[in-house]
Nucleic acid binder design. Structure first.
Lengths: 347, 347
DNA sequence: CATACAAATGTTAGCGCTGTCATTTGTCAA
DNA sequence: TTGACAAATGACAGCGCTAACATTTGTATG
């Protein structure tokens, strides 16, 4: 039996036998070296190396009722915004014994609920979830989770536990104000995949144009489709087919903005003179496009890294002095909006 | 004791107690329903629902010596190419009880080795690794892995187990041939992050230009830096500072190509008339850029999905009729190379 | 040198589940 | 009805590890 299952698997007991100590001492030597005398510790380490012992995380999890896995729920794997957050999360766990398990909610609240249950059944060391629009059930699950929880991407009034994000609404408001300040009056909004964050950007846009008395429903172009560069081209075509009275476009994200830029180039619409263009997220390419495109820089990697740091601190028993962190954003004003200024808000 | 640890946790035994059967019967009702009488099965299912029982994957893993986790090793999380592969992998496991655990090797063979050991210690149901350039040690680990293994992204002569990919070398060869066929003679190669796949693309390029007697070392621009759009701009500037005798550029990937395109626009270099431009991967935006950019389409999502399918088939005990799959590629000839044709190779 | 106490190590009993084998129940032919 | 056999269910042990408690060893003190 044993011979078959554990084919060659070295256990704590094996190490103990060779080193002439009990299994638990080996366990301690590995996890809490200071509890074992230096002499023994060294002998054990030698045997571990010699035998090529690798701790079994599954057994450890069962015995100690905890894992070293941080569960992360994000709505999309492909969206480059989340890819950046992931990178941040990875850099955060790097060098620690923790690993990361992702769940893709695909922008579905129900899928989020389901994944949450799955994750929670695995005794995560911590949980990182996207946004603040969980279902009632999800919130309950998170509240009762016996591990630290971080909500990322947004700020909101009632954090489940900890939170790192920024205000999409304020960011969009500032971007729109920037367009207005630079002389644009007929400012369109392009929004794809109207998820909660996009909705809040729309809110910010609306607040700004309404305040300035520039609101026109005809300038609102939204679609449930996922945003792509091609969609940006299309939305511009759609808009222009409807009206020529547009002098700026605030895009819900940089993919759309890039599409708009290409389409403007094709149609020989001068950016920023005929049309001002502003994106969101400040993807790397925006700064080197032709012309460089104004965008709202968000700190996506930082968000991931901070979230992990908070989880790790809590797991280590430290308390987190600032459990709610507003990372802010930065308006990168560039040529596409006749931009010179550069302002910062939040955090 | 118990009360504290398992706070509210419902176990198989709990379900069994309420349903008046033994724990093992509940286990069977859940895993192999056909082994339990319909009547009992129904009663058990009711109790499971009533109590909100969720199986504990950790305990199951320890007892059965296997998990439902597929380990995936990729060299980068941010690179959009791998993001697409991930999406494919996700769509592959969707609806199955399997989940995915990623490891980021950051293009390091040693990190790959380390992660491999970690993953293997967790009894994965299967392993998906990127490329064919594992270290000797890694190959040994993979060979001895007691689970199916799929190498993705590339084709190679000696698969560890299964393989899904395409020939980067052939793809680059065809792309370069296309440039030559369309009248370009001074064809530069831009390569960033010279990982094995980039190296093979370079090989393909070299084969084509040498065959045509068009090789010039001065047209080879490579850098270990990660590729970005900005880097594309820079490499073009560098090249032009060195020589004006260039009439086409084959970029190692689409990020670089996009940078080159923007820089050409800025410098009023006409694409495709002054300079032909070809990318690699056919990111969505290439088709709608201005002008649309020729690129080599690769089937990244498909690669991920197929890899998962192969693992699942093997886990289910089926045998995989075609354990080595060449997915091929497709040259998307567009305006940036005066392209009309559209050819296919591989698979 | 006995005492007290801390440090170091060991013993025991599971964690929740599943593999294996044993037992019970049901079914059918003779 | 009985026996033979399959189907359904159960008992038991153990996966590899760690928490909690128990014991031993070392060390300082009077």
């Amino acid at each position: 039996m044993k011979s078959d299952r554990s084919a060659g698997k070295v256990t704590l007991a094996d190490v103990g036998r060779v080193a002439n100590v009990s299994a638990i001492t080996v366990s301690r030597a590995l996890r809490k070296p200071e509890m074992v005398s230096p002499k023994l510790r060294q002998r054990i380490e030698e045997v571990v190396a010699e035998l090529g012992y690798v701790p079994d995380p599954v057994a450890r999890a069962l015995a100690s009722d905890r894992t070293d896995v941080i569960g992360v729920l994000i709505p999309s794997v492909t969206n480059s915004v989340f890819a950046d957050v992931l990178r941040g999360i990875y850099s955060g766990v790097e060098g620690s014994p923790f690993s990361v398990q992702f769940g893709n909610t695909r922008y579905s609240v129900l899928e989020e609920e389901r994944l949450l249950r799955v994750f929670l059944s695995q005794r995560p060391a911590g949980l990182i979830v996207s946004g603040i629009d969980q279902s009632e059930t999800s919130r309950t699950l998170l509240t009762q989770a016996r591990c630290p929880v971080v909500q990322i991407m947004e700020m909101g009034p009632a954090p489940v536990d900890m939170m790192v994000g920024f205000s999409h609404c304020d960011a969009a408001y500032d971007a729109t104000r920037h367009l207005i300040a630079n002389g644009y009056r007929r400012i369109a909004f392009f929004g794809a995949r109207m998820d909660p964050r996009t909705q809040r950007r729309l809110e910010g846009y609306l607040r700004a144009v309404k305040e300035a008395g520039l609101f026109d429903e005809g300038l609102l172009i939204t679609t449930p489709r996922a945003s792509t560069v091609e969609l940006g081209c299309q939305l511009l075509s759609d808009l222009l087919a409807r009206t020529q009275a547009v002098d700026a476009i605030f895009c819900n994200n940089d993919d759309l903005a890039l599409g708009v830029l290409f389409e403007c180039q094709r149609r020989r619409i001068a950016v920023p003179d005929d049309i001002g263009l502003c994106g969101f997220n400040d993807l790397e390419m925006m700064a080197v496009a032709n012309p460089p495109v104004t965008s709202v820089r968000t700190f996506r990697q930082e968000m991931g890294r901070r979230a992990v740091e908070m989880v790790l601190a809590r797991v280590a028993g430290k308390d987190v002095p600032q459990p709610v962190v507003d990372l802010g954003y930065e308006l990168m004003a560039r040529q596409s909006t006749r931009g010179q200024e550069r302002m910062r808000r939040g955090a």
